[in-house]
Write a protein that binds this DNA or RNA. Structure first.
Lengths: 341, 341
DNA sequence: TTGTATGCGTTATCAC
DNA sequence: GTGATAACGCATACAA
């Protein structure tokens, strides 16, 4: 790869015997430049294979036209969908996306955020990692005057723009559906309670039990069961209880629900007749297990779109009264794993 | 969001009564600056919450420390895995990733590439879209002195760095496995033949047939069956032939293999006894269908790592003799859908 | 409509 | 060791 001297507006100007400012104006399609010279400039720019140096341009303009995204993992369905949704909207407005993954690690998350601040991004979009305990780094973003949008996993105490799912409602509906289907003892696989989304899902679970006068049984609630393996482990524990549950709400993810299903199959427990299963997130595989898994769709791509639109909407909005919170209502998708009859 | 004036090296210099150059040197950990002043500078920088303006730095240094990635879709398992793999390596070296999706559209792909050239990225990593017919835009990348690395779906005629799978070998092994399992009439679901990867997979298929003296039957080869829907459609066609196949190699993807499986289930055809199925890509769901689907693992995250490492290895390498091509050997994963007994 | 001059924040090359 | 100064490429306020 040899070093190539790129053509600048000065090169174009020199060739045409005019000044760089005129070239700059023409390239920005300024109205205050002669149509004929504009054409000439455009043509020459093309001939010289000119590409604007966005670095210089942005430095001059004090913006970067770049949005930073921090997620725990890029290659996780939900997140890659959200990113795709963001990209869809931002690309057409000439914005670029810088992607970082925190790997569920607080320290790396801080590093990512700092990197993005360094980059002078116009906005940071983040879904916090599971083991985040303090949010100084996010406060830092705000202190730098950078727009901050949290989505899905949010630090509630921080007053920022947020795009979230109505986790309480979704979980409430899921558990209500189980109860109405005749399930009497409903186990809960819960996620790390320092993440509000998991707290909310538990809240929805409890709310449904209460409404239907189903007693809350502590031993039916399994902590930290948010991977397939942990879901399987929790299920083994639950199913070996003297009074095992007849349904399990894997509130953390479909992965954990898959763990439930596999253990049930292994133990010869029939789904859905002997055990109902409900997951979360509508991962693509949940449709093709046998039986297929009842789950909750979060409209992840749409969520990404919403994040992007929120950003554009807030650009130049000086009215900092109350940071907007947009809540997307997830949808319960009823499938084989809860269709008893 | 109020506009905040960020602290610059001048602010630090002013506060300490020294010049910006010293500050710059200190921040770059130059050896030719007094240890004590260095410490002082660092401390003050921290106090003033200083963040280097990478834009300015990069402009000055004539680099961007940014790598552009263009893929058809971000939210497709294979690609998001590759991206995750790239990010893993580049992040720790202080490089950023700008992600674009071409959406399998040639025009948008050109746009993406131009955007990245504008950004003065140091390298463009691309997997070309299915309907790409000419590669002028990629030549353009090279003309700008930007490193170009193609992966997986590559334009073979272009002399660039490449990281690919050995598709021929993998397909050869898959089809050999089918033949050795006793399958006699093996159908092929093939992808767009303008993409070399699909051509190669067909080549592997033909090679295996030839080696085992299995005649090639044209009517068993279905063009353009590279989504679940098209795979299902092709399967319906194949299974309604007077002499239907007893195995189908869905060379395009596991999605298409899933289409095969669903049609087989619908038609009451037993897998694997009456019909063997082999997919491609080892999507997460292929493990949990019933039966599970035999497939080919491409080591996608590792592929991303390899791309990144190749880039770093080639930095400053002036020896442009022959562009390197790294071929990763995929692995056949034998599962239920081909385990006849 | 065009040109002149200046600055965005850094770093590199001189001097001292 | 440190300071002064120019330059990276572009955009804009001001002048003509």
């Amino acid at each position: 790869m040899k070093k190539v001297k790129r053509t600048t507006i000065y090169d174009i100007a020199a060739k045409l015997g005019i000044t760089a400012s005129s070239v700059s104006r023409a390239l920005n399609n300024s109205s205050q430049v002669n149509e004929k010279t504009k054409e000439l400039i455009m043509k020459t720019a093309d001939e010289l294979n000119y590409k604007r140096n966005i670095l210089a341009s942005n430095l001059r303009k004090g913006q970067s036209k770049t949005i930073g995204v921090v997620v725990p993992r890029i290659n996780q369905n939900f997140f890659s969908n959200v990113i795709a949704g963001i990209e869809e909207m931002t690309y057409q407005k000439g914005y670029n996306l810088i992607i970082c993954q925190s790997g569920e690690d607080h320290e790396k998350e801080i590093q990512c955020v700092n990197t993005l601040i360094n980059q002078h991004v116009d906005c940071i979009v983040i879904s916090v990692s599971a083991d985040s305990y303090d949010y100084q780094h996010l406060q830092n973003v705000l202190d730098h005057g950078i727009q901050l949008i949290q989505f899905d996993r949010v630090a509630e105490e921080l007053e920022t723009l947020k795009v979230i799912n109505d986790n309480v409602q979704a979980s409430f509906e899921a558990v209500s559906h189980l109860i109405e289907g005749g399930y009497k003892r409903i186990g809960l696989l819960e996620g790390p309670q320092n993440l509000s989304i998991f707290k909310q899902r538990k809240e929805g679970y409890l709310k449904a039990l209460q409404l239907y006068n189903v007693p809350v049984v502590e031993e039916l609630i399994v902590e930290n069961a948010w991977t397939k393996e942990l879901g399987a482990e929790g299920t083994r524990k639950l199913l070996s209880l003297p009074h095992p549950p007849d349904a399990i709400f894997a509130s953390t993810s479909d992965f954990s629900a898959l763990g439930v299903l596999e253990v049930a199959n292994l133990m010869g427990i029939k789904v859905p007749s002997e055990l109902g299963i409900c997951g979360y997130a509508n991962e693509s595989f949940s449709e093709i297990t046998s039986p297929s898994i009842t789950t909750i769709d979060q409209f992840s791509v749409y969520m990404g779109n919403t994040v992007a639109n929120l950003f554009f909407q807030e650009i130049g909005n000086t009215d900092t009264t109350k940071p907007k919170i947009i809540s997307i209502k997830p949808e319960l998708i009823i499938r084989g794993s809860t269709k008893r009859k």
